[in-house]
């Protein structure tokens, strides 16, 4: 079990990612290598040592010269990891817990590692009020390290604008891609869900990891409390026990709406509590991915 509380004690994202990858791989039990394909890249003049089966006989018939086809190994998947690094993602209800951003980075790093490992191209987009960092998708082994490097440098801050990330992906992801969004969706833009659905309409495969701290779900406040916004200067004073019932009702209605909207738009929705073991989150997700690929 990849207990977040245990992972939280591991210093550094890389260690957490490595531990998570090993744990996940143990859980998968199957090799991720399959479904590879080869795509023509260019011709080159034949030289001794080239494989004869790559000689382009049609060109020889036209020009009597031996040219061999050069191929570029094609990736199975082009994936974008979209990580929300807004201020609200820096929240943790207890000190021994991962923040939502740390949890999201661990998930994203693990996914990057796994994808690269199976020779998929992985890209990264980080956003808060706007897209603050990006890596174009690549299938090179070094890509995982590059992604981790970016993720390690992230700090929660600023507002949330998923729209900026969607616009960024619309420009960059022209080919059909898998887009994995890791966010708490606490965007003041009420159309945030529609934006996610738009990605799906662009024929991308969209998965949404919706991260929530347990304190957000249970609202464990009783005494008079001054609640401060994590993204702007708003605040509100209330007795936790007075507003708990209303808060939980509003939260449940919103979560249900998110689930319903994702379902209607064929978005793979995964609700994640930050006290939830990571393998519990990733293994079902990866299993669904395998089934859909098959």
């Amino acid at each position: 079990m990849l207990d977040p509380a245990v992972l939280a004690r591991l210093a550094g994202l890389r260690l957490r990612v490595r531990a998570t990858v090993e744990g996940v791989l143990t859980g998968l039990h199957r090799s991720p290598h399959h479904g590879q394909s080869v795509e023509f890249s260019e011709h080159k003049e034949y030289a001794p040592g080239d494989e004869l089966r790559h000689v382009d006989w049609k060109v020889f018939g036209k020009s009597d010269k031996y040219y061999v086809k050069r191929f570029e190994q094609e990736t199975n998947l082009r994936a974008w990891l979209v990580v929300d690094s807004s201020g609200s993602m820096g929240y943790r209800g207890q000190d021994d817990r991962l923040t939502k951003l740390e949890y999201a980075c661990t998930l994203a790093g693990t996914l990057a590692h796994l994808l690269v490992r199976q020779q998929d191209a992985v890209g990264l987009a980080v956003f808060s009020g706007e897209v603050t960092g990006a890596l174009a998708p690549r299938a090179e082994p070094s890509q995982a390290s590059a992604v981790l490097e970016v993720l390690e440098s992230l700090e929660a801050g600023g507002g949330t604008s998923l729209a900026s990330a969607v616009r960024f992906l619309a420009e960059r992801a022209r080919r059909r891609s898998a887009i994995v969004v890791l966010s708490d969706l606490l965007d003041r833009d009420e159309k945030v869900l529609r934006l996610v659905a738009d990605l799906r309409r662009r024929r991308h495969e969209v998965a949404l990891f919706h991260l929530l701290d347990p304190a957000e779900i249970e609202f464990p406040f009783d005494d008079p409390t001054l609640f401060l916004s994590m993204e702007d200067d708003r605040s509100v004073e209330a007795r936790g026990q007075d507003v708990r019932k209303g808060y939980l009702e509003l939260l449940a209605a919103w979560l249900e709406e998110v689930r319903r909207t994702c379902g209607e738009n064929d978005v793979d929705y995964v609700r994640v509590r930050t006290d939830q073991p990571l393998d519990e989150v990733l293994l079902p997700f990866l299993a669904r991915r395998e089934r859909s690929a098959a």
Binding site: M89, E216, F221, F227, M230, V236, A238, L251
Partner: peptide
């Protein structure tokens, strides 16, 4: 307390 889902708290209040 810094709290992310402050919109819900404000609305509930």
């Amino acid at each position: 307390v810094r709290f992310p889902a402050i919109d819900f708290v404000m609305q509930a209040r």
